[in-house]
Write a protein that binds this DNA or RNA. Structure first.
Lengths: 224, 224
DNA sequence: AAAATATTTTAGACTCGTTTAAATTTTTTA
DNA sequence: TAAAAAATTTAAACGAGTCTAAAATATTTT
C-alpha cells in the first residue's frame, strides 16, 4: 500500500504532466505541493525505486504506466467524492475540495464503485473536471472546452468548467449567477482590457473582466 | 490537529475504560491496538503532554475531559459512517467496519453534520452500538441490553446489538436470519451446554450455541 | 568559453511512530 | 517478606517524510 504522501506526489506529478507540455521539474512539484525541492528529490528516488516514475538525476522524470494508474485512481476518487458531496449531501461546489482531498485516500474499491453507481456513473465533477473511469479513461478537457476569454463575439456557449478552483472564485461565480450549464452569449469584448459583456441564460446582462473570463471554460462549439 | 494514531489511541483507551471497570493498563492498550507495550508508553507520554490523559508512570492512567471529547468525536464519526454506508450506499453490516475505520479520521465538522442529518439523526449504528451526539451523549448499552445467553426461558426479546463485530459472526447471523430488530422467544435452554432453542419472529425454529448467544444483545425487558 | 545564475541534489538533522532488548518497578506467591 | 514473575518503562535504533544549508550540476548570459 502507498502512503497518502506518495499518492499526493503521484497526483501532483500527473497533473503537471497533463497541463504543461514540456518536462516535469523538481521545482514544479515542490511548488504544487508547497514543499521544498530537497523533499521532492527524496520522494522522487522513492517513487523511482517503486517504479512509479522513471527518474534520472538532474534530468527530469516521466511517469510509468503503474504510476499513472495510481494517480488516476486517486483523481477518480477525488472527483467522485466531490460529486457525491454535492449531489448526495447538498454541499456547495466551493465547499467540497478540502474534504475530497481527505476522502481520496480511503482504500476501498467497493466503496468507489458504490458511489459511482449511486451517482449513475457521472462523467464530470461539480467543477466540470472529467472523472476517470475504472480503467483511467476520461474525456480530455482540451478537446471539450475553451476559455471564455478566447471565444468569438456574438455567439452563445455553455459553461462547462472552471480553471480556478478556489473558494473565492467559485463564490464569485455563484453571486453572478454563473453555474455549470449556464448559457452565455458574448455580446461584446472591450478592446482596451478585453473585458466581456455577456447575456446570461438569455436574460441577464453581465460584465466580467478578462481575468475572470480566463478562468471559465465553455463548450468548444457554439450552441452546444 | 491530532494524528490518526493519536485518535486511534484515544478511541482505544476510551473503549477499554468503558468496558472494563478497573484500571486501564499499558498492556490492554497494546493488545487492543496490536502494538507493543513500549510503543504505548511512548504515546501515553505524548497524550499526557497534550493533556488528553492523566498519566503517572507505573501507575495507570485516566482520560481527561478533552481526551474523552476527542475519543467520542471519533466514535461518533465511525458509527455515523457505518450507518451511512449501510443506509445510503447499500453496504451490508459486515462490510462497513474497515471502511469506517478510515473515514472516522476525516476532518470536517460540517460533513459529520450533513451525514447525521441525511440519516435523520440516528441513535444507533448498524450493529446496535449507540451513536454519540455532538456533545458526546449517547444511550448507555448496559442500561439497554443484556446478553441473549443470560435471558429467561419462555419470554420474547428483541435483538438490539452484537458483541462480536467480526465479519464471520455477522455473516453467520445473516444466514440464520437474525438481524437487528428480530424477535426471539427463548423456548428452551439445554442444561448441559446452555445452548438455546429459539423461535425467531414467531415463525422459524432455531438452535444456537451458548457461544453465539453470548455475542447477541437483546432488549433489557421482554416484549420491547 | 567563462562567468553568473538557477536548479537540483546531497548531507545532516529533526519529528513521529514504531521495534527489540535491557532495566526498572510492581505484583504475586511461596 | 523475600524471591520470582509479570508488567512497565527506558534506551537505542529504524523508516518515513520533512527541513535548512551546502555542494553539485545545468543553463543562461556576456
Amino acid at each position: 500500500m502507498n502512503s497518502f504522501t506518495e499518492e499526493n506526489y503521484l497526483k501532483a506529478i500527473y497533473k503537471i504532466a497533463e497541463m504543461g507540455d514540456g518536462a516535469i521539474t523538481t521545482n514544479d512539484i515542490a511548488r504544487k505541493l508547497s514543499t521544498t525541492a530537497a523533499s521532492v528529490t527524496d520522494m522522487l528516488k522513492k517513487l523511482s525505486k517503486k517504479k512509479f516514475i522513471k527518474y534520472k538525476r538532474y534530468n527530469g522524470l516521466s511517469m510509468t504506466e503503474s504510476g499513472k494508474r495510481i494517480a488516476l485512481a486517486v483523481i477518480r476518487k477525488h472527483r467522485l467524492w466531490e460529486m457525491f458531496l454535492v449531489k448526495a449531501l447538498k454541499f456547495k461546489w466551493d465547499e467540497v475540495h478540502d474534504i475530497a482531498e481527505q476522502m481520496e485516500h480511503v482504500q476501498s474499491e467497493k466503496l468507489v464503485q458504490h458511489i459511482d453507481k449511486a451517482l449513475n456513473y457521472p462523467k464530470f465533477d461539480p467543477h466540470g473536471d472529467p472523472i476517470p473511469d475504472t480503467n483511467g479513461k476520461m474525456v480530455l478537457s482540451k478537446e471539450r472546452s475553451v476559455l471564455l476569454a478566447d471565444v468569438k463575439e456574438g455567439r452563445q456557449y455553455m459553461v462547462t468548467g472552471v480553471v480556478d478552483h478556489s473558494r473565492s472564485f467559485l463564490q464569485l461565480l455563484d453571486k453572478s449567477g454563473i453555474i455549470l450549464g449556464s448559457k452565455v452569449r458574448v455580446k461584446a469584448v472591450q478592446p482596451y482590457d478585453r473585458s466581456l459583456s455577456l447575456l446570461l441564460n438569455g436574460k441577464k446582462n453581465l460584465f466580467i473582466s478578462n481575468q475572470i473570463a480566463k478562468n471559465i471554460l465553455v463548450s468548444n462549439n457554439p450552441k452546444t
